Amino acid sequence: MYIQHSADIWSAHPELVAGVVAATGITADAEVGARVEEFSAAARARLAAGPEGEFPEIQAWRRAFSRMGLKPTQYRCAAEALLRRLRKEGALPRIHPLIDLCNAISTAYAVPVAALDVTRISKGLDVRLAHGDEVYHTLSGQVEHPGPGEVIFADAAGHAHARRWTNRQSGHSAVRDGTATVLIVMEAMHPSAAGDVPRLVSTLAAELTAVWGGTPATAVLSRSAPRAEFAV
């Protein structure tokens, strides 16, 4: 299993830093409530000082979306959408222990975190511009085709595992109760991303070990190191 960003992505977004964690042994019966609350509380404390739209992490993604020709307040990165919901509702819905933990950590760091079921990915992920013929499955089961030039997570079978980059994740590889092996991707573009993303990777890996055991494999990707491979 591999993940890599295309040269076009690095050329257009040289400030990008991506973190990756690969883990197995995931189960749906783990208890993560206290950990979720700890990270959510950190996010709520930050939101108390100002809305998510003022966070440098979110502003960087808004600029990136604007460069891609998207209206940033219409298409929000996943971290902004979660923070917005947390600010309005005070908590996030519980879905699956891994997703709940990733979502809470995402709000604490204000960085998009995507967890994908490895068994639903063919060979690996290429973060690249869409050709337009890739297949994207919504969480409700509908089939869409990303527009040409849209940034997607693509695999060798032509599945788009994310649309509009960090905006919408595919239902095809969504984590479910039977998911055991996952690839978790974190991406940021704000000025301190080079330091924040490695800390986020370490935090997430430590949480996975504490909850599910094992030693997750990790990597940090940059323009000079654009690809990571994992034995999963």
Results as ranks from 00 to 15, higher is better:
residue 153 F to A: 11
residue 117 D to Y: 03
residue 97 P to G: 10
residue 107 T to G: 04
residue 149 G to L: 11
residue 141 G to D: 06
residue 109 Y to R: 02
residue 154 A to W: 01
residue 113 V to R: 03
residue 152 I to D: 13
residue 129 L to P: 14
residue 154 A to N: 13
residue 152 I to M: 11
residue 103 N to W: 11
residue 124 G to D: 00
residue 134 E to T: 14
residue 109 Y to W: 13
residue 101 L to Q: 04
residue 105 I to T: 01
residue 113 V to Y: 04
residue 150 E to S: 11
residue 146 P to M: 06
residue 105 I to Q: 07
residue 148 P to G: 09
residue 128 R to E: 06
residue 143 V to D: 00
residue 106 S to Q: 15
residue 111 V to D: 02
residue 121 I to Y: 00
residue 136 Y to N: 09
residue 94 R to C: 05
residue 149 G to K: 12
residue 146 P to G: 12
residue 108 A to C: 03
residue 116 L to Q: 07
residue 123 K to P: 03
residue 120 R to S: 05
residue 105 I to F: 03
residue 117 D to E: 08
residue 114 A to Y: 01
residue 147 G to F: 11
residue 150 E to I: 13
residue 150 E to C: 09
residue 149 G to Y: 11
residue 133 D to W: 12
residue 104 A to V: 14
residue 135 V to A: 13
residue 100 D to M: 11
residue 114 A to T: 14
residue 155 D to P: 02
residue 108 A to L: 07
residue 131 H to K: 08
residue 93 P to Q: 02
residue 144 E to F: 11
residue 120 R to L: 06
residue 93 P to L: 07
residue 152 I to H: 15
residue 120 R to P: 04
residue 93 P to Y: 09
residue 102 C to S: 10
residue 112 P to W: 00
residue 140 S to N: 04
residue 112 P to I: 01
residue 140 S to F: 07
residue 126 D to Y: 12
residue 122 S to Q: 07
residue 124 G to W: 00
residue 131 H to V: 15
residue 108 A to Y: 08
residue 121 I to A: 00
residue 144 E to T: 05
residue 100 D to E: 09
residue 108 A to S: 14
residue 133 D to G: 13
residue 152 I to K: 15
residue 144 E to D: 05
